[in-house]
Design a protein around this nucleic acid. Sequence first.
DNA 1: CCTTTTTGTGATTAATCGGGTGACTTCTCG
DNA 2: CGAGAAGTCACCCGATTAATCACAAAAAGG
Lengths: 268, 268
Amino acid sequence: MDTNESVEEAIGLLQQLGLKEYEARCFVGLSRLRSGTAKTLSEMTEVPRTRVYDAVRVLESQGLVEVQHSSPQEFRAVSLEEATETLRDQYEARVERLENALDTIDIVDEGDDTPIQQVWSLSGQNGIENRTDQLIEEATDEVVLVIGDESLLTDDLADSLNEVVSNGVTLIIGALTEPLEDQIQTKVPDATTFITGLEWLHSENATEDETAIGRLLLIDRSTILVSSITSGSKEEQAIFGEGFGNGLVVIARRLMAQGLVPAHDPGQ
Amino acid sequence: MDTNESVEEAIGLLQQLGLKEYEARCFVGLSRLRSGTAKTLSEMTEVPRTRVYDAVRVLESQGLVEVQHSSPQEFRAVSLEEATETLRDQYEARVERLENALDTIDIVDEGDDTPIQQVWSLSGQNGIENRTDQLIEEATDEVVLVIGDESLLTDDLADSLNEVVSNGVTLIIGALTEPLEDQIQTKVPDATTFITGLEWLHSENATEDETAIGRLLLIDRSTILVSSITSGSKEEQAIFGEGFGNGLVVIARRLMAQGLVPAHDPGQ
DNA sequence: CCTTTTTGTGATTAATCGGGTGACTTCTCG
DNA sequence: CGAGAAGTCACCCGATTAATCACAAAAAGG
């Protein structure tokens, strides 16, 4: 809606995608013009005129802008589809090369691992999401999952759940609210669902930096992941433990036995 | 094969993907260790010990490593699959947001366009590739394509070609060598192929900064794209013109009539 | 043809960021 | 309790990047 806001956002995103500020400004500037000269661009983007040339040159070498070598020379941005496709290609190529490089390396050295009680923490919505999916896919016996916020019920997650349930794994999913439970039953029809009775899971009054429950995942009764979301920063943080004897896991099992999952049977 | 080399490459790639040097070093360091402390990591990666903590914290917040809050605390990298998946997600999210932002903007202002003869230049393998594909898909009548190097015959390109040929567009593809022609007939069976007789298209003796032909694309006899590859830098550069009256296009048509495409009939 | 303005290049300065180091507090363990 | 390791901070300095300026080349326009 608000163009100015979107412009700023686009500039920021382009910088996150690796462009410098001037390059980003020039690109969105050109995106709003069918075509423009250095002067036009400079006026519209606040980029010093003499620096427009450098910026555009970089953009051209990345396939985001085309240049007409006349005098004065004119610039124009490639179409939105071409631009995003180019960016995607670029990134995909890098990630693939990274995969290969790390693959040929992975030859680990000294095993610096202590096979005792371990509790790891990780944060970032994305990373936690991926870890969740992976853990679910590795389950052989039982998956217990409690979801605290509907935004966490992604399609990828549903895919993982449906895949594992089709392999004969028992799937028990809890929700904090009834509407959420309905959503779950729609996306993962084969799961046994329930509404958790643990009040402390609910995000109280949404005060400042109140901490709400994110997910709670128990795999084969021996691996657990619990995450929370601070309502202010919306950053998700998780702790994660594995091993049947792991303290965290033991607590989780006890918790479960007590009433998190009401008697293990569906409905009510 | 050579681990050391791969390590360096991985570090470079991670930096291109947005990590700082220390972060990149720490991540590949942890990738070779099942788990490690700040000291271990510092020794292995040449990152000052006191800075390992910052770096790892950032990595954790991005979902690339997990931390055990013991003393001394231990770090470990997530699996290769999780890491690449996380990176992909992150990027995809950014590109999508960019798409939206630019979409709400695109409301162009003053049309600063000159509808006269225009020849644009663009560079970068990726961008040129995308432009090529897009132009092909827009063809309504005829596509003439000459490919100068087999590396340019990508799957995406073949897809575009096959798609457009199924819409009844005449497709004529030239190659510089016979093996290349064979490849083309395999990937795009419905195309009429030939071997170009234009000697200057061939990359002479591969001297220093010799310039070899990349692609030559003529769409509906009114839009043309010609690219070259400097053998040294392997950078691809292209010029691009549209409009039936465009000078560049006129030359291309004449060139074609002369013998680029031998009499327009298949084989020999 | 000469003047004036615009265009493009290059060098130069200023500010920011990231790599690198060391001081200092806290913790662990003998 | 004391030595050494772990962890946190604050700082320095070099490189990158934003920003300005000086100047040559080229158009525009009398």
